[in-house]
Amino acid sequence: MPDVNRRGLLIMGAAAPALAPALAGALPASAKVQTVAPPDPTEVVRLWPNGAPGGEGVTVVPIVPERSTDPAYRDRYAQYTTDPIMTVMRPDKPNGSAMLLIPGGGYRWAVLDKEGFDVARVFAASGTTCFILRYRLPADGWSAGADAPLQDAQRAIRLIRSRAGEFGVRTDRIAVLGASAGGHLAGLASARTDAAYAPVDAADAASLRPDLTVLMYPVATMADPHVHAGSRTHLLGETPSAERIAAYSLEKMNWNGAAPVFLLHAMDDVSVPVENSLMLLSTLKAATVKAEAHVFQEGGHGFGIRLIQGRPAAVWPELARAWAARLDFAL
């Protein structure tokens, strides 16, 4: 079977639990079968052995509400995280690549399934070892403020790289995928060369830079008129200065020497305008960063994997894989 067909079947297989309700609706009542969401992986890695840094003033209590009422899929979000973790999803046949997945949520929370577990299952199906990040949020009282999520992302990359042998991945094949505000965080992790925290153990001797970056409908700019206002407020506060806005706008950063970047966005995204990706693409071109962008006519915002089935943007995992393969990076 040609490789593209095999991968297409893998995508369909990974998405099957989410598609089941629609398929069941077309069957006679006697033929309907109850489906349930696949179980979560059980392997979890704590990021900080002695607690996350700068938490002396943190009083929030973590919650993980479930929004889905359909047993075929889950839709959880993590809010007020105090003990950041990575959930490891190991493939049946590892190809040596790793992917850190950073879900979005406007820096208010992190959606765990739609842009985390659901996406991870698709890439794990083709051999990538996936790590779903549950990160701290900037407005919860951490002394690092806006850099608290970045501390978690940088620490996660270093842990994956320093323990590459344990996870069965190559130290030079570590990708990061971020969606929406998670795309902003993934962009920070890709563009920033400075560590946002003091070393805590030997793992922090490893490089904090990803080898490949995938940004799904990313929050890029913190400036009007194309900013996602909620992300800016939760990251920088109600009235950030012009200097702070510029410092956290991805299109204003120095991307020289950054890893290759893959961008995808929908033209009809009314939450995070497509200009976020277009402005960032111009910056990447000026910095001679290898980059590819796919702009779909329709798709809206936050489509992940499940919500885009049957629409043109559903091909995005295959587009990302093909692009990565041209860079000798298996996804």
Rank of each mutant, 00 (worst) to 15 (best):
P138S: 12
E56C: 08
N50R: 14
R108F: 00
I160R: 03
A206M: 10
A144K: 13
L263D: 06
G257S: 11
S162T: 10
A72W: 02
R74T: 05
V122Q: 07
P199V: 08
A18Q: 11
E318L: 15
Q154R: 03
S249E: 03
A287E: 07
M253A: 14
P94E: 03
I132Y: 02
F117T: 13
A313R: 04
E43P: 02
K93R: 11
T35E: 10
R121H: 05
R108S: 10
P2Q: 12
G116Q: 07
V272Y: 03
A223K: 15
K285W: 08
A229G: 14
A320Q: 07
F296R: 05
A258V: 01
L133T: 06
D269T: 08
P312G: 09
R74P: 01
W48K: 06
R155C: 13
L236M: 05
I132R: 02
A144I: 08
K114S: 07
S143Y: 03
N254G: 03
T82G: 02
A146T: 04
N5D: 13
G230F: 07
F303E: 11
Y248V: 05
V88F: 11
T42W: 05
S249N: 03
S126G: 01
R90E: 08
A181F: 09
L27H: 07
V169H: 06
V36A: 14
G230V: 02
V44M: 12
V64Y: 00
L208M: 15
N254Y: 01
H228W: 06
D204A: 11
K290Q: 14
K252S: 13
A325E: 15
R163I: 11
L319M: 12
T193R: 15
A189G: 05
L9C: 13
E251C: 01
